[in-house]
Amino acid sequence: MAYTFTKDLETGNQLIDSEHRQLVDAINNLLAACGAGKGRMELANTTKFLQDYTAKHFSNEEKLQLQYKYPDYATHKRYHEDFKRVVAGICAKLEKEGPTIPLVGEVNSTIAGWLINHIKKEDVKVAAYIKGK
Rank of each mutant, 00 (worst) to 15 (best):
residue 1 M to P: 03
residue 83 F to G: 14
residue 21 R to K: 06
residue 21 R to E: 01
residue 105 G to M: 03
residue 22 Q to M: 12
residue 61 E to W: 03
residue 17 D to R: 05
residue 45 N to A: 15
residue 74 A to L: 04
residue 19 E to L: 13
residue 100 T to A: 14
residue 11 T to N: 11
residue 109 S to I: 09
residue 91 C to T: 05
residue 29 N to M: 02
residue 15 L to F: 10
residue 36 A to P: 00
residue 74 A to I: 05
residue 88 A to V: 09
residue 48 K to R: 07
residue 18 S to L: 03
residue 57 H to I: 10
residue 18 S to E: 04
residue 17 D to H: 04
residue 116 I to D: 00
residue 100 T to K: 08
residue 17 D to A: 13
residue 115 L to K: 04
residue 78 R to A: 13
residue 115 L to R: 03
residue 109 S to H: 07
residue 118 H to M: 09
residue 83 F to M: 11
residue 119 I to F: 04
residue 26 A to D: 03
residue 2 A to H: 12
residue 69 K to F: 05
residue 75 T to P: 00
residue 63 K to S: 02
residue 115 L to M: 09
residue 19 E to R: 14
residue 4 T to S: 11
residue 112 A to T: 08
residue 36 A to C: 06
residue 108 N to V: 11
residue 95 E to L: 08
residue 66 L to P: 00
residue 123 D to I: 12
residue 40 R to H: 04
residue 7 K to D: 13
residue 40 R to I: 05
residue 71 P to S: 13
residue 133 K to P: 00
residue 72 D to I: 04
residue 51 Q to T: 12
residue 132 G to S: 15
residue 104 V to N: 04
residue 47 T to Q: 03
residue 63 K to E: 01
residue 130 I to W: 02
residue 82 D to Y: 03
residue 125 K to N: 08
residue 115 L to N: 05
residue 14 Q to C: 09
residue 117 N to F: 11
residue 120 K to A: 13
residue 35 G to K: 09
residue 4 T to H: 07
residue 125 K to H: 08
residue 111 I to L: 05
residue 117 N to V: 08
residue 112 A to L: 02
residue 34 C to H: 13
residue 98 G to P: 00
residue 119 I to N: 03
residue 48 K to E: 02
residue 13 N to R: 09
residue 133 K to G: 15
residue 20 H to V: 10
residue 94 L to Q: 10
residue 87 V to I: 15
residue 7 K to E: 11
residue 24 V to K: 02
residue 71 P to W: 05
residue 3 Y to A: 15
residue 133 K to N: 12
residue 90 I to C: 10
residue 86 V to R: 08
residue 13 N to K: 10
residue 133 K to T: 12
residue 26 A to M: 08
residue 111 I to N: 01
residue 25 D to T: 11
residue 57 H to C: 11
residue 19 E to M: 15
residue 92 A to C: 06
residue 128 A to P: 00
residue 96 K to I: 07
residue 41 M to I: 06
residue 75 T to V: 13
residue 10 E to F: 13
residue 77 K to A: 14
residue 2 A to W: 01
residue 103 L to G: 06
